[in-house]
């Protein structure tokens, strides 16, 4: 079996985000970039499938600027076998990414496609669902457990009411949730080995995908600053404020 894992280059989770002065977006100058944490979980899950013997090859895909190659290298250093960089300077929307992934699926014929449930930059949570729809494949989103057996997969999903387990036919699309696993760190020998693993380069045009924007960003703003709290005298005061000022009870 073959697994395709999508890995997105995003602002590192430790970085304090700053909005650009002209409100056109987030300032990315000299900001540390890393692999989207949900995608690390995706790579880890693929590695575990391989270690369990159910998968032979793991292909890591990143779509975006040239530096996305570093994100692919991270996946290769964790243990993925090869990479595909789909290079574009264009800002991408979930539908573009889903279409590019669909075109790659047509070339690569994977059995399992793993994406993060969302990326921590725009938090869209759309790409996996769109991809499954484009492919007309079963989807298991927000996965907290994946078991492969006999050409099928049992995927446990984290839903509002608790856990839901689906049995999906392969090929399938899954998106990872936080509790699926704890990703490993790349060891130094694997970092060295990753240097020699191949990364293919393609462009959206070669894959026949039009990446013209369909959305227009009007303005990006900081969320409103949190208001200072107030001290209440007693419970009666609290109830009064909740009822009459906040209007929540």
């Amino acid at each position: 079996m073959k697994v395709l894992v999508a890995v997105k280059r995003v602002v590192d989770y430790n970085v304090k985000i700053r909005v650009k002065a002209d409100q056109t977006g987030v300032d990315l100058n000299n900001v540390k970039m890393s692999m989207n944490p949900f995608d690390e979980i995706g790579v880890e899950e693929a590695l575990r499938m391989k270690e369990a013997g159910s998968v032979e090859e793991i292909v890591a895909v990143s779509i975006g600027v040239q530096q996305c190659q570093e994100t692919i290298r991270t996946a290769l250093a964790m243990g993925a076998d090869r990479g595909i960089l789909v290079k574009t300077e264009q800002e991408l929307e979930p539908l573009h990414v889903a279409k590019i992934m669909a075109a790659l699926i047509a070339e690569e014929q994977p059995d399992v496609v793993i994406l993060g449930k969302q990326a921590i930059d725009d938090d869209c949570n759309q790409t996996g669902q769109m991809l499954a729809a484009l492919m007309d494949w079963p989807q298991g989103t927000f996965a907290s457990k994946i078991e492969l057996a006999d050409g099928k997969a049992n995927v446990t999903r984290e839903v509002d009411g608790g856990l839901q387990t689906l049995t999906l036919d392969l090929p399938m699309v899954v998106t990872t949730d936080l509790r699926l696993n704890e990703p490993r760190y790349a060891s130094l020998p694997n970092i060295m080995k990753a240097k020699k693993k191949p990364i293919d380069e393609k462009t959206p045009e070669e894959l026949g995908v039009d990446t013209a924007p369909r959305l227009t960003t009007l303005k990006v703003e900081d969320p409103p600053a949190r208001q200072a709290g107030v001290k209440v005298e007693d419970v009666a005061d609290l109830v009064d404020k909740l009822r009459n000022e906040a209007g929540v009870i």
Partner: peptide
């Protein structure tokens, strides 16, 4: 190099 930085990321997480 990029490999040095990847190593730094690994140690930092560790």
């Amino acid at each position: 190099t990029d490999e040095h930085e990847a190593f730094r990321a690994t140690v930092r997480r560790f």
